[in-house]
Simulated assay, not measured.
Amino acid sequence: MNKLVQKARWVGALAAVTALLATGGGVAVAAPAAPAPVQIALGGKALGFTVSPDGTKAYVLVNHRVSATDMMSTVRIVDTRTGAVTHLLTTNALNIVRTPVVSPDGKRLYVIVGRDVLTMDLTTGAEIARATAPEQPRDPEGLNESMLTGATVSADGTRLYVNQYGPFAPRLGSGPGRVLTFDTTANRFLGATELTGFTVDRVNPVPGTTDAYVGTADSVHHLDVGSDEPAIVGTVAGIDYGDELAVSPDATKVYALGHRASTGAVLRIDPQEDTASTAFTVEPNLEDLHLVSASPDSRRLYLLRDGKTPKAAVLSYDTATNAAVPGETLTGFGLDSVTSTVLGRDGHTLYLAGDKGDASYLEAVAL
C-alpha cells in the first residue's frame, strides 16, 4: 500500500459500517456525517486509549500540564465521526492512571486510578462506583505495594482481569506480581493469584473458553479464569520473558513478544500443548517492535515497527503461512511517533495515537 501521508484519514464510511453492524442488515445505509480532520488534537500527551465496540468513540488518557511543575491526567472522548473532543474525567495530579477499558456493550468505562477501579456510566458521564484492590501480600516486610497496572474485560462484560506488578523497595528487592478478578456487576474484587515475576502484563482471554494467557518478567502463564480466583494451569515452555501477547479470535493461536523483540522474533504458542516456537522474524531486527492485534477473522497479525520514529509502520502477516504481506503495510502517518494502536472490531479500521511536536493526536486509517 502506498504511503498514507495524504491517504491516512478518518474513515468516511464508518457511520454506514456502524449502521450495518447495529441492524444486521445486508445493505448499509450511509448517514450524512461531517468530515473529520485527518489528525485530532488531544490537548496533551496521549498515554493510551480504547475504542467503543461500534467504533464511534475513542476514550483517550491524556496527560497535560496545569502549571509549571504539575501535570494532570484526563480521560477525553473523541467522536470518531466528527472529530469532536469532550471531557469525561480528571484525576488528582498525584494519581497514577492507566489506559481505560470499555465494556462490550459500550455503556461503561473502567479506569484504573492508583489501586482503585473507577466505573463510569457513559450515558450520563458520571462515576457510579469505585473499588480499592485488596492489600497486596508483601514478603519480606518493608516492601511497598505497587499500583494496579492495567485491566482486560471479559467477553460477556461480567469480569475485569486486573494486573498488578509485585511489591518492591530499594535494597529489599521485589516480590511477585498478581492477577485480580473484579466483578463488574457487584463492583468488587473477587480474588487474586500471585504469579512468578515482578512485572505482569495484561491478561489475554482465549475466546469461547475460560482460558487466558498472561506474560510476566520470567514466563508466560496459562490461566483458568472460570472461577473467582484465577488458577495457573500451565507455564509455556520456551519463553522466559513475555510482556506482549495476542490471541487470535478463533482461539487457535497465541502470539508473544518480550525479550525476543530485540531479535525481531515473533513466537507462536500452541494453546493445546503450551509450547512456543518462532512463527516468523521481522527484518530488520529492531528493539522497537510491538504486537497490535490479530484480525477479527484470525487471518492476519499486525505489528507496529519503528513506533518511536516518523518512519513508524504497521506490518501485516498471514497467520496461515507466517509470511509478510508487504502490500498491506501502512506507513506515513504524518507523526513524529506512534505510541499506541487499537484495531477496530470491524477489522478494517486501525486507530493510532502519536506525537507531533509537543502535542498528541489521534488518527484512524483504513486497512
Rank of each mutant, 00 (worst) to 15 (best):
S316Q: 07
I96G: 13
A279F: 03
G258T: 04
V66W: 11
K7W: 15
G264I: 11
P104V: 13
G327S: 13
G55E: 07
A30W: 05
T252C: 05
V85F: 04
Y59C: 12
S316T: 06
R98C: 07
N63S: 15
G44I: 11
S316A: 11
N204K: 03
A129Q: 08
S295R: 10
L89A: 03
A93G: 12
T91N: 02
F189G: 08
G55H: 08
L143Y: 02
A41L: 14
L94V: 13
K45C: 12
L89F: 05
D218F: 12
A276S: 05
V233S: 04
V325K: 01
T90C: 02
P137G: 06
L143K: 00
I269Y: 01
W10S: 03
G226T: 09
V162E: 06
P271K: 12
A237P: 00
I77A: 09
N92E: 12
P176W: 07
A320E: 15
V117W: 00
E145H: 05
G238S: 08
V27M: 04
L289D: 06
G215F: 01
L267A: 07
V254N: 04
L367R: 08
G44N: 07
T184R: 03
T278V: 13
L109K: 00
A151V: 00
V38W: 06
V203L: 11
L143E: 02
V214H: 04
K3L: 05
Y59I: 11
V162D: 07
A320H: 15
G175S: 15
A68Q: 11
V75N: 10
D288P: 11
F333V: 02
G357F: 13
L286Q: 15
E127T: 01
V200M: 00
L122H: 04
D306C: 08
L20D: 09
T124H: 15
A246I: 08
I239A: 02
A359H: 10
D105F: 01
V220H: 12
A312T: 08
Y302F: 01
V17F: 07
T263P: 03
A320Y: 14
T329N: 12
P176F: 10
D306S: 08
G48E: 09
K57R: 12
L330E: 00
S298E: 07
L94H: 14
R202N: 11
A186F: 04
T331H: 10
P37H: 05
L304T: 03
T196H: 12
T185W: 03
D224F: 09
L109E: 03
P35V: 02
Y241I: 10
A93Q: 10
N204V: 00
Q6K: 11
A359I: 05
T263A: 06
G142L: 03
R268K: 15
S174M: 09
H64F: 15
D105R: 00
D79I: 07
Y317S: 10
G24V: 01
D70C: 14
V51S: 03
Q272G: 13
T309A: 15
L286C: 14
K356M: 06
V162L: 13
D346S: 08
D306K: 07
T339V: 14
F182S: 13
G175H: 14
